[in-house]
Design a protein around this nucleic acid. Structure first.
Lengths: 218, 218
DNA sequence: ACCTGAACACCGTTCAAGT
DNA sequence: ACCTGAACACCGTTCAAGT
């Protein structure tokens, strides 16, 4: 849309993100990103070496948006902040979820992230096996939850409730437990699916905390 | 590859899965799937209405491969069996991970899955909120773990250790905690990243079990 | 009824040509 | 140095034509 100024690698990546936000990852083509910048698709090759390189850069762009507390932050707060921030980025840019994890080579940005996370845990006295368990479990949860959340409006959430009820209700006999669950959750009044993220995260972090305490006692 | 017999919807879907296994989702085109069957790409339109419909069918094909214990199975065993089976399917067909959750409309197969899972939990005395927490947390973990596992050989695993060490080792000062973690885990001798799946699943299911027991006592 | 060939509007990418 | 137009080998999809 902004067709002024000279092309830079940064402007190309930002334009690609804008196209992805608007049209999904499938809408990102060299020509469409060029169009976003008022330029032919072929011009982009002066700033990125290939479409694949552009996608790698796009993955890094998303990772960089995740809030990463400082190395000396307390482990639990830091893990929560990072998890919530990652989820917010994934919801704002759904195309980034599968992408961050599916680029063939782990980027320097991702390695830095991982190193920082392990730093919080080691500083708190985690052993390497427990740190790995904590890290991989929380990360898997965050990625998987975001994946479900952005693509599967399965449980009540603003706007999705009606759709979901419409899918399940026509034949309650076909999905009796889904119907029951829906009815019970909605009757309680204050239920929203998004709050399940904090519930799950707390469940996992509490369990890890308990294991950490057990390690210390031993 | 098998170019005999008449085309059916099932053969088209199976051919698409074979192409995806071999060349990834990006390698699936109407022409390539046709080629797999010894037929022109245009012929497929007699059996699937569009490429998008073919991808929907492919998602269902993968879901159907996940082992789903009977409605009267004990909840924890059933959840474990389904989780491990889902992970196995995702590892065998990496293209299916993002796909199952990213098709716009939840398929009947997926709704049936969800209903069965809720059935195990309700039979065991879960409240609707606790069932939802259990379900969404376990599912998020399974999806997210599979996503990391197939695309991010970050931690020691057969064959990936060398690569990973090569990425981290050149400059141990850049990733001190990653280096430390790697060293400690490898020195213990029997560590493998894939076993982290069972560890994480157990952590989550133990925590849920504890909440269920607390519910019963109250 | 099922398969095909040509055609259309797209892709990523290369390269010689313009400025 | 940076951008472009034409070209190549691909896409998904339509449709008239073949069997």
């Amino acid at each position: 849309m902004s067709r002024r100024g000279t092309l830079t690698r940064e402007r190309v990546i930002a334009a690609a993100a804008a196209v992805a936000d608007r049209s999904g990852l499938a809408g990102v083509s060299m020509r469409s990103v060029g169009g976003e910048l008022g330029v032919e698709g072929m011009s982009l090759y002066h700033h990125v070496s290939s479409k694949d390189a552009l996608l790698d850069a796009l993955a890094e762009w998303a990772i960089a948006k995740i809030d990463l507390p400082p190395p000396d932050a307390p482990w639990r707060e830091a893990m929560e902040t990072r998890a919530r921030s990652a989820r917010a980025v994934f919801v704002a840019h759904p195309w980034s979820i599968a992408m961050i994890e599916s680029r063939p080579a782990p980027s320097a940005a991702l390695l830095t992230h991982h190193d920082r996370v392990l730093g919080w845990l080691f500083a708190a006295g985690f052993t390497a096996p427990l740190a790995t368990l904590a890290f991989s479990t929380v990360d898997a949860f965050v990625y998987g939850f975001a994946l479900s959340e952005t693509n599967l409006p399965f449980l009540p959430s603003p706007g999705a409730e009606a759709e979901f009820a419409a899918t399940v209700s026509p034949d309650p006999g076909a999905y009796p437990n889904l119907s029951r669950s829906l009815t019970e959750l909605l009757s309680s009044g204050d239920y929203t699916y998004p709050s399940e993220f904090d519930n799950g995260l707390t469940l996992i972090l509490d369990a890890i905390q308990a294991q950490l305490d057990a390690t210390r006692d031993a």
